[in-house]
Structure formats: structure tokens, C-alpha cells
Computed example of a mutant assay.
Amino acid sequence: MQRERIDSSEIIRRLKLEPHPEGGFFRETYRASGNVVREDERETRSASTAIYFLLCDGAHSAWHRIRSDEVWHFYAGDPIDVHVLKANGTLVTHRLGNALDRADAVFQTVVEAGDWFAAECHDREGVSLVGCTVAPGFEFSEFELAVPGTLEARYPQHRELIQRLNPEV
């Protein structure tokens, strides 16, 4: 099924997206007014947060991790691959896309707290609009961008993918 490409500049303008430090564009759309406290600490966090996230123009979401579970939701455009490195060295790639049009795609996937992950459009020239919901809510203080070289040393079997999606230094 051939469909019309979405216009990334129009999406950025209409959704009021800003550049994200890991790559792509985003805007927080929700922050719960209720708070939670993790069992292992005393600091409160918003119970949940949500963002729009857009990848386009060959950009990728560089390797990073957070301390909360993150649910990814597909909205529009081309499929996006979310690569997850599990602690045991397993690499799992989730393809987010229109699951009604593509048998290899899902509408939602979860990245568990503490897992390293990165994302890219399946077609490097693609444009993909997704959403991410984080619980407990996202805080930049809990965002860790991978230091180039550290993931390759820990997961040498995935060196090529890790290097390709490394953060800009």
C-alpha cells in the first residue's frame, strides 16, 4: 500500500517540537499532577509523563537509558526501529509502525527501566512520529547518554550497531 509521506517541517511546526538532546525532535505533552516515590529513594517523581517524538532527515535517537519503563507508541509515517540492549547482552529490535499495514510492525512496545536503547527510522530517509510514555515520569536528571566506547566494550558482539547510533561527541 503506497501512502503519502508526512512533511517533517509541518509536523515540527504544528506540534511545536524542539530538538531533543539524543536526536530528533520532541515536546512534552503530559506530566501527571500526582507524584510517586520509588522504594529505593526519597525523592518524588511525577507519576507519568508523555511526549511526541519525531525522527526525520536521517537523525537517530542515540544510545541512552533512563530509570523508568518507557512505552513507545506509533502515530504516523514510516516504521521506526527501537534497538534495546539487555543486561545479558541480548539485542532486541522492536519495529514500531502501522501494524494494520505491516506484519513486521507493532503499534506499541516497552523499553524496561535501565536498558540501553536507541532508535532510527527503518528507512534512513523516513519520517516517523511516535510518542513515549514514561512511568514514573521522565526527569532529565535520570537520563544517561552513552559515552562513546563504553557500550562497545560491554557488548562487542553489537559493535557496528552501537557505533552507528552513538551520540554525537
Rank of each mutant, 00 (worst) to 15 (best):
R5C: 03
L54Y: 07
Y75N: 02
A50M: 13
D78I: 06
R67P: 03
Y52S: 07
R14L: 14
A32S: 15
E168V: 14
E125W: 05
K86F: 07
L161I: 14
E10F: 04
H20E: 08
Y75S: 03
A146Q: 08
M1R: 13
L161F: 00
T90R: 13
R14M: 10
Y30M: 09
A118L: 03
G97T: 07
E142S: 12
D57P: 05
E160Q: 14
L55V: 02
H83M: 09
R95D: 00
R95Y: 02
F117D: 02
F26P: 05
R5G: 09
G149F: 02
G24L: 08
R42L: 13
I6A: 08
Y75A: 06
V147T: 15
A62T: 11
W63V: 03
L165A: 02
A76R: 13
L100G: 12
R42G: 15
I6W: 02
G137R: 00
D123V: 06
W63E: 03
Q157N: 12
W116N: 06
R164E: 11
E125R: 13
V147D: 11
V130K: 05
P156K: 04
V127Q: 01
V127E: 00
D7V: 00
S8A: 15
P167V: 11
D115M: 09
V106H: 02
R42P: 05
E10R: 15
